[in-house]
């Protein structure tokens, strides 16, 4: 995994989050997924399943307890993908 891979992950997450967000907030790496994007818990969990399929990885739901921002989600995906 490289910096390019990380940037790809970040871009994909921003695109996907924009698709499910109920907010007009401009999504950046520091955007808070729950409080700023008004994404309910089920939408977020469904999004995680899509991300799992995209990268062919398993993302445990419980790992999301440490995730607030888009950057933290990208870090988690990058870490799991790197280890797989």
């Amino acid at each position: 995994m490289t910096e390019n891979n990380y940037n790809e992950i970040m871009k994909l997450l921003c695109d996907r989050l924009e698709g499910v967000s109920n907010s007009n907030v401009q999504i950046t790496s520091e955007t808070n997924i729950i409080s700023q994007l008004s994404i309910d818990s089920i939408k977020l969990l469904n999004l995680i399943m899509e991300i799992e399929d995209t990268f062919d990885i398993s993302i445990p739901i419980n790992a999301l307890t440490d995730v607030q921002t888009v950057r933290e989600l990208a870090d988690l995906v990058y870490k799991i993908k790197s280890a797989s």
Binding site: L45, I48, M49, E52, S58, I59, P60, I61, N62, A63
Partner: peptide, 8 residues
């Protein structure tokens, strides 16, 4: 405390 994975 187990890892939780959902399926459709």
């Amino acid at each position: 405390g187990a890892d939780i994975i959902r399926f459709k």
